[in-house]
Design a protein around this nucleic acid. Structure first.
Lengths: 161, 161
DNA sequence: GGATAATAGTTGATAATGGCAACTATATTC
DNA sequence: GAATATAGTTGCCATTATCAACTATTATCC
């Protein structure tokens, strides 16, 4: 994983970007998303879980959503179904997910976690809770709530095209 | 570009993710980052500018930062210098950026926008202002400020490892 | 001033992410 | 029953991203 800068470096460089740029919320979002991805990647590597960040997100959906199909996941993540097919293949190859026939639609398969997948999901739950706790440290609960609501609204505003 | 869902779909699916997940701010960030990337990609394609989102961000840095070098950009974006070298090569190949020798360090080159690059940068400025305006529609100025500050804090918190 | 260590940038290799087009099998609509 | 739409797959390609090893140069140390 890449060298992670100490806080002074982050403060100085990030502040410069914020001062100099017009699209501050866009840049702030990109910075945060990149930092999350890097940290998640580091954690997955440190725990030697052998999966990538998008795999983690897919496993979560399968774990939580009943009667989950590939097109469900594609729709939830706004991704091309081809990409979801590939991500699922990787998880199936690693024995973490399996397909069951969908009694309601022969074209489609229901996705379920294997026992191994469920075990891994427990580890991932712990990791993401830990990350969430770390990144929200010293942030007011109300401010965090505003962050989530603003992010949600901006996502919707961008979809309105 | 992928089909962009209408608002009802986004509301329903996004709310489900928020309800079901534990790492809500992580998911909200990923959703927003993806939406921004897709919208930016669409705009770049619609305007037939022939560059990718990361190229846009690099051009902005070169435009704004005096005595800009590749390692500066790598540090600002927390990317591997190899990636920045490749991104710059693409921009140089397209005649948007050029290298000048750095009188202070023979290992290093100063990056400047060509007249063509400057012209493009004006278009990009307009596009990102437009996107910023669209995505921040109906959002209280104070809430937007909280969003940016919380994003900044979370980015720093993740760097603190 | 020379040896050693660190740095700026490049290249090779690889992985992760992402989308479009075309296809088959199946479901829906008219 | 024909036409249209959909779920999933595969081929192809692009974007993004990092690690390792390299060369040339700079900084540090003695």
């Amino acid at each position: 994983m890449a060298t992670i800068f100490n806080k002074v470096d982050i403060v100085n460089q990030y502040s410069w970007v914020c001062i100099m740029f017009n699209a501050i919320s866009i840049e702030a979002t990109f910075y945060l998303a990149h930092a999350i991805k890097q940290q998640l990647g580091s954690q997955l590597e440190a725990h030697q879980l052998g999966i990538a960040p998008m795999h983690v997100r897919v496993l979560k959906i399968i774990h939580k959503r009943k009667s989950c199909t590939a097109i469900d996941i594609a729709n939830l993540f706004k991704r091309d179904k081809a990409q979801i097919t590939r991500l699922l293949k990787g998880l199936i190859d690693q024995g973490l997910v399996k397909k069951e026939s969908n009694p309601e639609d022969k074209r489609s398969q229901l996705l379920v976690l294997t026992p191994q997948g469920k075990a891994l999901q427990e580890d991932l739950l712990s990791i993401s809770e830990q990350m969430q706790k770390q990144m929200t440290q010293d942030i007011d609960e109300k401010d965090l709530d505003v962050f989530i609501k603003v992010a949600q609204t901006m996502t919707k505003n961008l979809a309105n095209t």
